[in-house]
Nucleic acid binder design. Structure first.
Lengths: 192, 192
DNA sequence: CTTACATCATAACAGTTGTTATGCTTCAAA
DNA sequence: TTTGAAGCATAACAACTGTTATGATGTAAG
């Protein structure tokens, strides 16, 4: 097992503690205990606590971005966009844990301008991806020509964010089927 | 100045610290300093830190619920629902601070089941209010008869939540006008 | 075998946390 | 005037925090 693998193990331990205990109760010692080791391991693979936490979050973000790209492949038209959006939703229990980390981090970022700026970059990236998808659909005349695509991309982001927080707080209210319906309904309204 | 007024002042000081510094950096001493007093004041008016934080959040929630009820008065039909939703949006800078507190609290609640349950109750209340509005609209045949109203109420909650987080993270992407457009677009799709 | 480095444990550091106890005012009731 | 409580300041408490230094172990290269 190489360096990067071990480093990832530490991050995943941190990730589990965040989901179970909350971000502010995720201390170096708690992470080490979750890992079954001492804090020496944690400090060995990460300079700061900040570096560790940011790395753990980046794993979650990259994971869902990868899922979105994977779902996009082989799909076309409206269905392609719909599948991409679905890939970002907390449809499974595992996805729900990802969203817990994400929301914990959003709250943690309030009052921390540096973290807010990092989130902005993430949102910019997602917005750019969705914009491109919408632009392709508009060229193919599959969605209305009068749509402000940047605005609609933001609408999609807000939709996913809203469903994500809804699932984390009230899991019973948002089944996978209902999540898909909400996305389908939203995208359907864009069609030409 | 009575007891309750002073108590509210303490909560508002905590509220300002949360917005500026973040929830996990909102210590008893930071609140006291923001208030221009000592920690003795804080402990005098609140048993726990938890009691203080929960009280501060409740103020925010009650404030926006009151705004929603006020906006509902004198309005009718689809416009009534639209105004109520708009009352919960972060259209002004002041509202944005409310949303910062809200989102900070959402993240803080991850891994704290008691807080999650309290949020569920809040969402249940809002869902009930929106359900009633939708039911009235459905009886008046102003929205489609085949809609699952509970699902649509959840959709409205998700929409507002998504816009709220979007504004907090990327204020430039969600102007008041654009927020209103997104709500209008969503509600318009429900019409009969 | 020796050297050097990666991996990890342990311990100590100074700082911060929430909580509690104590004492000092001020002011109204008896 | 005495009594008592409200309002508030101060200080101390143990517990916890992130960080750092030091030492022990294994293991691969020379």
């Amino acid at each position: 097992m190489g360096y990067d693998d071990r480093r990832l193990e530490v991050a995943q331990a941190a990730w589990r503690v965040i989901v179970r205990e909350g971000l502010d109760r995720t201390s170096m010692r708690a992470i080490a205990q979750e890992l079954g080791s001492s804090t020496g391991v944690v400090t060995h693979y990460f300079r700061d606590k900040e570096e560790l936490i940011l790395f753990a979050l980046e794993q979650v973000v990259e994971s869902t971005l990868e899922s979105m790209r994977a779902c996009a492949k082989g799909q076309q038209g409206i269905n392609r966009l719909e599948q991409m959006i679905a890939a970002a939703l907390p449809l499974t229990d595992s996805d729900r844990d990802d969203w817990k980390v994400w929301i914990a981090f959003l709250g943690y970022s309030i009052g921390r301008d540096r973290l807010i700026q990092q989130h902005q970059k993430r949102y910019d990236l997602i917005r750019q991806i969705l914009y491109q998808e919408l632009a392709d659909l508009q060229v193919a005349k599959l969605i209305r020509a009068d749509l402000d695509l940047t605005l609609e991309a933001n609408a999609l982001i807000a939709l996913v964010d809203g469903i994500g927080t809804g699932v984390v707080i009230c899991p019973d209210q948002f089944s996978a089927q209902q999540q898909r319906y909400l996305v389908h309904q939203h995208i359907h309204a864009l069609q030409a």
